[in-house]
Design a binder for these strands. Structure first.
Length: 645
RNA sequence: GCCCCCGUAGCUCAACUCGGUAGAGCACCUCACUUGUAAUGAGGGGGUUACCAGUUCAAAUCUGGUCGGGGGCUCCA
């Protein structure tokens, strides 16, 4: 198989991470023989073979080195997507192929077969893939002259491939061929199909060609593959575990929130337990912000549509707004963001340069028309309350203010135990004249300062062109949810534009009016989305300080009920959220119920405890912790909660 | 909004393939037990099978539509 490939330079990775170089001209087969490697697994090919990750069979201990290496994983999954395409071509001869890349977890391939795939189709395809892999055919890179490639696609009516070829300048173009099937592809690929041992096709869905909703909808098949069945089984078990942490499931089970048809799509109800957690988050963030010089305000959820015509939102954001309501001589809209209100707050009175920055904050409730298909539990809703603030400052203060916001974000993430997360710097797409307001100088200044601030902070980030707000660039903090999908939690935006639109001013040292700069920022996101993340982060078992019910008192028998109530009362007097289980169940049952509701502490009280004015403490995490005087336990829990543990 | 899948009691599910007007566990209520660290026992109530049409002697079951949920796409805090 691989003997024909000539090698420029090659490095084999061995167990334990050490590498061994091989000279130019050696064949893969020779490397495999010398290194005691049974099969070459992944060859990173870019004209020549440069690097080889290999499966090493040593002392009967088989290790798949490719899977320790993200690049190797991509190659593996990419080759599996070709195998998928081959199987689909065989089973659906008229199938048109689009693209089939590896993704973070697995791969997909987009097809056009004139109809959707059924679950039965998927089973047949998966079965066919196994058969093809079992034939263990070599995968070869071939160079095809453009005219020949074009002819190939024409013959097959492969319109998508033809379009792809238009975007590739190469001549000849690179193809990969296996077992009579060939696909235009830059590579690299596995040396042979037999290395693909365990395949699972996970789902199908519609996907617009080139991600454009005006173009045809193709049928996408998602899948994943592994070098061993065991690795696949482990992956599927992890998926199941993730589903157990889903905030929608836990939200119902723990009585945190509910969504009902009668109220409407994307309009969740916060139940008492969920509302308690929300209130704790609100208090936490308001107290913290006030300590940092933010001034909290309260402004209405409605506004005259004229306000958004001034701000520009009516032009740039209207499709996400609810239609205006005519009342008397006004046209009112539900606000889709809070900035214009805060700008009007700033405009009440004059500002001296000495008084800047002015930091106006609000837990602002707003309403966005989100397309029905995007709504998800609490993570994506139509009515939401944002931990919003707008900082009005002098240009020379911008950098410090920006940095202070990022520090605030870092502190909050630590307090809330939110991790991992990554920074995305969202810039405009200079070629997009529709979605970004036009003023090159402003953009360049804002983007430049943002990037400089990130440099000062020494933070790693990913640049995302086209992701900016219409009025300016932003720093987004992305957090993956339990299914691995990233969503934006915090955002910090630099805005020279709205101060201009609204004619904002401060009086400078020179007693002349000057234009302030604005920072839009949200730290804990919307309370809805933060709640969704925290539920998943903690699998419903909130830390003590956030737990809706911190302590549950469990009387052994009815005669202990009065003492149990006194104990709960003593806890509540110290601000501890305590309940009594007054049911006539056995203690084991009461413990089970409290454990399932993830209550951090259970206090079992019977004759012994009552006689000593004590409680038998059981922790949610550690189990029975023995008996403790009631007063001592109260002090201990109050201290733990205050320390945010 | 688009593509696919799904919708039976508060929750988890059975009956649906091959139509004959619904059943279990948990939860809830009652009674007995008065319980010592993850489910005491017995009994009871609760569903016009999401909704609206159609096919049929007969529809949870077949067909169409509407609403809602899920996975993606597009969009986004």
């Amino acid at each position: 198989m691989a003997e024909r490939t000539s090698v420029d330079h090659i490095t084999v990775r061995l167990p334990g991470g050490q590498t061994r170089p091989y000279p130019r001209g050696v064949t893969l087969a020779e490397v495999a023989r010398q290194a005691g490697v049974r099969d070459a697994l992944a060859a990173r090919v870019d004209g020549d073979v440069r690097d080889l990750s290999a499966r090493v069979d040593r002392d009967a201990n088989v290790e798949w080195l490719t899977f320790a290496d993200p690049t190797g994983r991509e190659v593996y999954w990419h080759s599996t997507s070709h195998l998928l395409a081959q199987a689909v071509r065989e089973l659906f001869p008229g199938a048109k192929l689009a693209i089939g890349p590896p993704i973070e977890d697995g791969f997909y391939y987009d097809f056009d077969i004139g109809r959707p795939f059924t679950p039965e189709d998927l089973e047949r395809i998966e079965q066919r893939m196994r058969e093809l892999a079992a034939r263990d055919q070599p995968i070869e890179r071939i160079a095809v002259p453009r005219p020949e490639a074009l002819r190939l696609f024409r013959d097959r009516h492969d319109v998508y491939k033809t379009e792809l070829l238009d975007g590739i300048p190469d001549d000849p173009v690179s193809f990969y061929r296996q077992d009579g099937f060939q696909d235009m592809c830059r590579g690299p690929h596995l040396p042979s199909t037999g290395l693909i041992k365990a395949v699972k096709l996970l789902s199908t869905s519609g996907a617009y060609w080139r991600g454009d909703e005006r173009r045809p909808m193709l049928q996408r098949i998602y899948g994943i593959s592994f070098p061993t069945q065991q690795a696949l089984d482990e992956y599927l078990a992890r998926l199941e575990e993730a589903k157990r942490r889903d905030h929608r499931k836990l939200g119902r089970e723990l009585g945190l929130f509910a969504s009902v048809q009668e109220v409407g799509q994307g309009l969740p109800l916060w139940l008492p337990r969920g509302a308690t957690v929300r209130r704790l988050l609100e208090r936490y963030i308001i107290d913290l912000e006030e300590s940092l010089g933010y001034r909290h305000v309260h402004t209405p959820d409605l506004a005259n549509v004229e306000l958004y015509k001034i701000s520009g939102h009516w032009d740039h954001f209207r499709e996400n707004m609810y239609p205006p309501m005519k009342v008397d001589s006004e046209e009112l809209v539900l606000r889709p963001m809070n900035c214009p209100h805060h700008i009007m707050v700033y405009k009440q009175g004059q500002h001296s340069y000495r008084d800047l920055p002015v930091r106006i904050a609000e837990l602002g409730t707003m309403y966005r028309y989100e397309r029905s298909g995007v709504l998800t539990g609490l993570a994506r809703v139509r009515a939401m309350t944002l931990n919003d603030a707008h900082i009005f400052c002098r240009p020379d203060q911008l950098m410090d203010e920006f940095i202070a916001v990022v520090r605030l974000i870092q502190r909050v993430y630590q307090d809330l135990g939110l991790h991992p997360f990554w920074y995305r710097v969202s810039l405009r797409d200079p070629n997009d004249r529709e979605n970004f307001m036009q003023n090159d100088a402003m953009w360049e200044s804002a983007e430049g300062q943002l990037l400089r601030a990130m440099q000062t902070l020494g933070l790693e980030f990913v640049e995302a062109p086209g992701e900016a707000a219409f009025y300016g660039p932003k720093l987004d903090v992305q957090v993956p949810n339990v299914m691995g999908k990233d969503e934006t939690i915090s955002t910090v935006q630099i805005d020279f534009y709205l101060p201009e639109r609204f004619g904002l001013e401060y009086i400078g040292e020179d007693s002349q009016p000057h234009r302030p700069v604005m920072i839009h920022r949200a730290v804990i996101s919307t309370l809805e989305r933060m709640m969704a993340f925290l539920i998943e982060q903690y699998a419903g078992a909130f830390p003590l300080w956030l737990a809706p019910e911190q302590v549950r008192v469990l009387p052994i028998a009815d005669r202990h009920l009065a003492y149990a109530r006194r104990a709960a009362e003593a806890l509540r007097e110290q601000g501890i959220r305590a309940e009594v289980d007054a049911s006539s169940e056995r203690t084991g049952h009461k413990i089970r119920e409290a454990q399932l509701m993830k209550v951090p502490y259970m206090l079992v009280v019977g004759d012994r405890e009552e006689a000593q004015n004590a409680v038998a403490v059981r922790s949610r995490a550690k189990g029975d912790e023995g008996t403790q005087p009631l007063a001592e336990f109260v002090a201990r829990v109050a201290a733990e909660a205050a320390a945010r543990r």
